[in-house]
Design a protein around this nucleic acid. Structure first.
Lengths: 190, 190
DNA sequence: GTCTATACCTTGATAGAC
DNA sequence: GTCTATCAAGGTATAGAC
């Protein structure tokens, strides 16, 4: 389908903001930077978005959509819930160059928004909730009761987030590679 | 001993900056805010510190000192290395109201400085290195060889950081309480 | 040494031409 | 609809009075 110029500009702004919010942080990304990366004059931004927060909301929405697509894709690609969970556990490894440098996109965003009591803090949670619920579903399919499945999903998330924090702190991929391997062994055992 | 007025002002600036860098982030903390909290006019800052980065350096130094003191204290308080490690694992629980709201002081600072390739990124690492080396020493005292001790120390850090990230994301202390309990059980087993 | 006043820049946000 | 020019506010850093 043919996108209008307006829709395309909007998408370019969101794409550029998505990358810059991740790599430089939300507060440290200026309209000027987004405008330069997107090739859209910053004066135009207020035609597409009422404020900077609204750009962030669109970015979060895009990330949630992308995540939802990945999860759906893994569900069709793998029949065994255990394989699906392993694929989730592999995510940090598959993107380690970025995570090593800038941390987990979900973890670092919620961390920044949490400080300063940002209004969009709850929106950022959605990404985690999506992953947690999906992982919980997979553990239930493996025969766990609701409480146990929930606990296991949370443990999985703690591992991956912890590895991301440490990998970024030391700019060292081994934190991720080691933890992912251990997590997959753990998934085989539970 | 009697501190001079200058030393006291310097200390007040560092104390105020320490708290604000933690609660609001480094980039989002202005001189005006620090000045208000410290009770020192912001024009004075450049008499004590050449730049904002130098204030941050002093803050990191203060945090490292504080951490070193805690570790030394735990060493004298507990003879069994396992008890010392449990005390370390308890740290997030003991400060959960703050961690729940603002995340781990070490993790969130390194995360922020990592983005933007900040010059003081390496300084912030020191805090982690201090804890990692200390934990490694304790595992060695428990009879582990160097490689195993190092691995265990890293696993410990991953758990605590992961729990802090999730607790802040959801503003929910249970992420910390649950993980600390599991970590202490894990410490008993290893 | 301590503080006031301010310079100079960048920010998010607007106004208005076309 | 798209873009240029500009705003007011707030940031770090400096100059200079006392």
């Amino acid at each position: 389908m043919m996108a209008t110029k307006g829709e395309e500009n909007r998408a370019r702004i969101v794409d550029a903001a998505n990358e810059l919010f991740y790599k430089h942080g939300f507060a440290n990304t200026s309209f000027a930077e987004i405008a330069r990366h997107a090739g859209v004059p910053k004066g135009n931004f207020y035609f597409y978005f009422p404020s900077k927060n609204d750009i962030l909301a669109a970015v979060i929405e895009a990330r949630v959509d992308r995540l939802r697509n990945s999860l759906a894709q893994w569900e069709t690609a793998f029949d065994d819930p255990r394989d699906r969970l392993k694929r989730l556990a592999d995510m940090p490894k598959n993107e380690f160059p970025l995570i090593m440098e800038f941390g987990c996109p979900m973890g670092t965003l919620t961390a920044e928004l949490g400080k300063g009591h940002h209004e969009l803090c709850d929106d950022a949670q959605q990404m985690f909730t999506l992953l947690l619920n999906w992982a919980e579903d997979q553990f239930r399919l493996l025969g766990r009761d609701k409480k146990a499945a929930r606990t296991l999903a949370r443990q999985l998330m703690v591992r991956l987030q912890g590895a991301s924090v440490m990998a970024q702190a030391y700019q060292d991929r081994n934190w991720i590679l080691d933890e992912v391997e251990q997590t997959k062994e753990w998934l085989d055992a539970v």
